[in-house]
């Protein structure tokens, strides 16, 4: 399933709705659906803020792939390349605005990786294992 949205924050609600629906259709429990919704929203918000620097005229492509053992989301943009080494949230003990989004993404998804082969822009792959034993199955798929 593929969703393409303009890079304007007003379209993030669509991403949340679709993420939740995809989760529900595949029988994922409500608590995890909420986490997935928040994490995918945060990842797209980061594209808007950092990759596109707030330019609302660009495009974000979100691809969903779900199997019994895993929930995969691939988010693509054509913006400024992210530096994976520099992506880290603030220490949670530190009370200040900002720096939480990446924590919401990483607590939900088991795999958080940028595709280094993409020439222009970013391709972020997020994978959540739905059952521990399915990790090997995903890696072999």
């Amino acid at each position: 399933m593929v969703v393409k949205i303009p890079s304007h924050p007003k379209y993030l609600c669509i991403v949340r709705e679709v993420t939740a629906k995809v989760g529900h259709i595949h029988g994922i429990g409500e608590d995890l659906v909420e986490q997935l919704k928040l994490a995918v929203d945060e990842a797209c918000a980061n594209v808007i803020k950092y990759a596109y620097g707030g330019d609302a005229r660009k495009r974000i492509v979100i691809r969903y792939k779900v199997d019994r053992g895993w929930f995969e989301v691939v988010i693509e943009d054509s913006g400024v390349k992210a530096d994976p080494e520099a992506i880290m949230g603030r220490r949670l003990e530190e009370v200040r605005p900002g720096g939480l989004g990446v924590h919401f993404i990483k607590r939900c998804f088991d795999i958080f990786e940028f595709d280094g082969k993409k020439k222009n822009g970013n391709r972020l792959r997020l994978v959540r294992y739905l059952k521990e034993k399915d990790e090997d199955r995903y890696n072999g798929a």
């Binding site: 949340r16 919704k37 928040l38 929203d41 945060e42 918000a45 009370v95 200040r96 605005p97 900002g98 720096g99 939480l100 989004g101 919401f104």
Partner: peptide, 16 residues
């Protein structure tokens, strides 16, 4: 119904 990190950041700023 929902809050993300930007909403939380806004409240932290408000608190400060």
């Amino acid at each position: 119904s929902y809050i993300d990190s930007s909403g939380i950041a806004t409240l932290v700023e408000g608190l400060r």
